[in-house]
């Protein structure tokens, strides 16, 4: 049993965890919270966004804590000024190519990117340059995709492929042109999507959301009131639809 345990130090705390544990998980066991963005437990563990970076003594550069496994004698620091500044830069870069219309976004208040920006005091976007522009796909009866809010975390892709075994969406192109797309860049209504919506549940931002029909309902309430008046007078029934 002893051989299966690894000893390390995180933010000055001596801890013992099972071999094969990630730094992120080890920190959690010691009640230390490390911020994440692309990470989705058991589904998307790819070390893509670099929000979870930490410093490891004796190492050049940062370690990506959501995928890096602990090692015997490791000394980890999760919130040095270097780490905090690097995370702020990462966020700055992501936001620099994000359609920031938070006031009118369905996810405002429940957006993981917005929460991190607040937490890391991103008050200004330093990097200004070209911004990717895509058409919104709202042709299916269920799902709307707004690529300009996509941060390429791949949580939706992993959910569709691994959890549901469908693979209706995947990443295409490289570098600045990377985006999540479908076969032949078709609308979700024309591909093998089942409209289960698990991708929406996985999305940290407003890039994926349901097709809103609340205004239709409210409109009908107003109109049906009118209808019900006439229905009442003709049928004489007290019910109103």
């Amino acid at each position: 049993m002893e051989n299966n345990m690894v000893h390390l130090k995180i933010d000055g705390q001596d801890i013992e965890v099972k071999k094969g544990t990630t730094i992120l998980e080890a920190a959690k066991q010691a009640q230390i919270d490390i911020p994440t963005l692309c990470f989705l437990k058991d589904i998307n563990e790819v070390g893509d966004c670099r929000m979870c970076i930490v410093e490891v003594e004796g190492r050049r550069g940062f370690a990506t804590s959501c995928i890096e496994k602990v090692q015997e004698g490791m000394v980890v620091h999760t919130n040095t000024p270097n780490v905090t500044e690097a995370r702020r830069v990462v966020l700055d870069l992501i936001i620099s190519n994000h359609k920031v219309d938070c006031l009118t976004c369905t996810r405002s208040g429940n957006c993981e990117l917005q929460n991190l920006a607040r937490k890391f005091n991103v008050l200004d976007v330093e990097f200004k340059g070209k911004i990717t522009e895509h058409e919104i796909d709202d042709l299916s009866p269920s799902i709307v995709r707004d690529f300009d809010k996509c941060i390429l975390c791949r949580r939706c892709v992993a959910t569709c492929k691994k959890v549901q075994g469908i693979g209706a969406i995947d990443c295409i192109n490289r570098g600045f042109d990377s985006c999540v797309s479908t076969v032949g860049n078709k609308s979700l209504k024309d591909v093998n999507c089942t409209f289960c919506g698990q991708c929406i549940e996985a999305c940290p931002t407003g890039a994926l959301h349901e097709k809103e029909t609340t205004r239709r309902s409210m409109g009908k309430i107003k109109r049906s009131r009118y209808i019900c008046c006439s229905a009442n007078s003709t049928s004489g029934k007290g019910s109103s639809w």
Binding site: R107, E201, E210
Partner: peptide, 11 residues
């Protein structure tokens, strides 16, 4: 756990 239910963060 349907696709129309309240969205929960990764954490």
């Amino acid at each position: 756990m349907g696709g129309g239910q309240p969205i929960k963060s990764s954490k």
